[in-house]
Design a protein around this nucleic acid. Structure first.
Lengths: 193, 193
DNA sequence: GTCTATAAGGGGATAGAC
DNA sequence: GTCTATCCCCTTATAGAC
């Protein structure tokens, strides 16, 4: 008698793997641990993800999509004002950094951990970083400031700094401070225009 | 006939290990590779460093000392003005980030890579991060601005952002921009006081 | 027919022995 | 300086349960 296939298996495995990868790092998590936490057999994992690299790439790609969607949602919820939209972007980052157990952006951490360049995960992560800067630049362009590139660089540096504060014991307080910081940067650039 | 002990062996091994760890990451470098590049036998390596953890800890500790010394030197060379000293600190970071082959701060990368907290390397890295912020705070205190903690946080965020730009293709240009940025932050804070 | 459980192959790592 | 013991990890193969 045939056993029913589990249509949620792939998502469940990916959920478990993402949680492990995010909390302890990709290199520190073995396939056996993913299998254990997912409560499935090794065979099922390897049919859905032929190798660990594929599992990691799926994890990174899904995170990237979620992150892009969250940033789009934050911008949309901020209305039509580019200033409010930019601040919403900074706030979204600040909230992520403040979450308990946050250990740095998974995509940036992957680039730090990964020895080889040019692989699937590598391209996903680098594309995300480039897209993130482009997203900032588009909003800054709508501000009408004198030197949009300078402001974009500074806001990008600010967001990078936020994300790099994963190991800072005070990281939970940094989000609101970063928003205020960004606010002043935007207003100063506008006043100078 | 007994062979003379090489007094420079330990330093040479550490040099080789540091170069490998910095360029490819600690996890991606094996002890065999260190032995090969150092041109020594395995025995010698293991007499100086009983385990890979010890070698890594020595590497991190030496980097921390060098980094502290470089920052002290930059501050000293800047004279007595706290403003010039702060900018010298930012410039020192910017120059490191711009170096070819820079792949992120070894201490921060270690924290990202390392699975276990509380070990030797972990404590070295966290102490360095705390000390670095303290160094900024001491200089900011001498500026006499209205809100020294706010300025310290912002400068720290700026330096963190610089260091986090390891994967940014434009990272070489970020250093000078960061110095200008810091300059404006300091001057604005002073003008408000 | 689909999944779980277990064992085993193949490679590479640390670490110790000689 | 080589050689080996031991271990861990990814991956595949096999056998059995539902």
């Amino acid at each position: 008698m045939a056993r029913r296939a589990d249509p949620d298996a792939r998502d469940r495995i990916l959920d478990v793997a993402s949680a492990l990868f995010a909390s302890r790092g990709i290199g520190a998590v073995g396939m056996a641990e993913v299998v254990h936490d997912a409560g499935c057999g090794k065979n099922l994992l390897y049919t859905h993800f032929p190798s660990k690299g594929d599992l990691v790439a799926a994890h990174l790609e899904r995170f990237r999509r979620e992150r892009d969607a969250a940033m789009d949602a934050a911008v949309t919820a901020a209305g039509d004002d580019p200033r409010a939209q930019l601040l919403a972007l900074v706030r979204e980052s600040g909230e992520r950094v403040a979450r308990p157990g946050f250990r740095g952006c998974p995509l940036r951490n992957f680039l730090t951990e990964s020895p080889d360049v040019g692989g699937d995960g590598d391209m996903i992560a680098r594309r995300f970083l480039a897209d993130s800067r482009e997203r900032l630049a588009r909003l800054v362009a709508r501000l009408g400031v004198a030197e949009p590139d300078v402001l974009t660089d500074r806001l990008a540096l600010l967001v990078e700094g936020l994300y790099a504060s994963a190991h800072d014991p005070r990281r939970a307080e940094l989000g609101p401070a970063a928003v205020t910081f960004a606010e002043e940067l935007v207003d100063a650039a506008r006043a100078a225009a």
